[in-house]
Amino acid sequence: MARFLVLRLGLIVLTLFVISLAIFAVTEVLPGDVATQILGQGATPENVATLRERLGLNDPWPVRYLGWVGGAIRGDLGESLVQRLPITEMVGPRLFNSMILASFTFFVAIPIAVAVGIWAGVHRNSFGDRVASMTSLAAISLPEFVTGVVLIIIFSTTLGWLPSSSLVEPGTNPLTRPQILVLPALTLTGVMFAYVMRMARANVIEVLETNYVRSAVLKGIPMRSVIWRHVVPNAMLPTISVISLNVGWLLGGLIVVENVFSYPGLGRLLLTSIQTRDMPLLQSLSLLIAAVYAISNLLADLTYTWLNPRIRFA
């Protein structure tokens, strides 16, 4: 187990290293001079040169890369070019806001989705199952921005129950105004919910057809026990690994949803950094999101290993 953990952690470090290199390379080949962009087209060459010097843009790339990564490891992500603020400070509250949104989906929606999936799988081909299957197929087919906009039209423009944008005053906690969280959370949930439900259902159906479930039924134990002791535990293993694979999808959804509702999270900040060509900010955010992704994958893997006796004792 310890060896496994060390190996996995090592792999994460390796992955993040490769990703950081990739991010750095991608953003460095970007056409256009950052200093010129900051100062505007009318800047004098001297001013540009001074700024380049101050930003360290004249150093060779390995030096700049090491400076960036070294800083990132110490928790110093540098300074935003546009807003001139330390990136760590800018990211902190945004990360918190995004986490609120994501954790709702993760801890509320996914368990419900799994439950619905199990129910649908056990009652395969029943009316309820057909409804659940069709709805979920529609739900995974709707892009987040469509769901979001449709929800706005229904609950905000038409019914006027909820606000259409989810702006948060800087320095305040979105949890103090929970009504602004409802629509973004619902939107983000839609696709994940449907996807997880479908996976849980498919896995339950697969397990139901195994020989050991047949043995369980023919042992004469009540159906309830067959489902809860034999089917569900074995169906959960593959479902968990699918969920972990889809954390990336959740993060992508976050980017879109935050922009639909102007919610001040990492995704919104990321798009702003792209629009304003704020390279240090873009680099740091990308690395951060990749790190979050890698860590959540590790957690999912650990859960999987812990639940699976075959790996645990191998």
Binding site: N211, K219, G220, S225, H230, N234, R310
Partner: peptide, 29 residues
């Protein structure tokens, strides 16, 4: 089932639940 009529299967490896200890699988009956 399991009480008056019981069954033994081909491929015992797949007839046993992989994630439950074998003793428990019999206690269930």
């Amino acid at each position: 089932r399991g009480d008056r009529i019981a069954m033994v299967y081909q491929d015992p490896g797949s007839a046993l639940n992989p994630s439950i200890r074998v003793g428990l699988q019999i206690e269930e009956v």
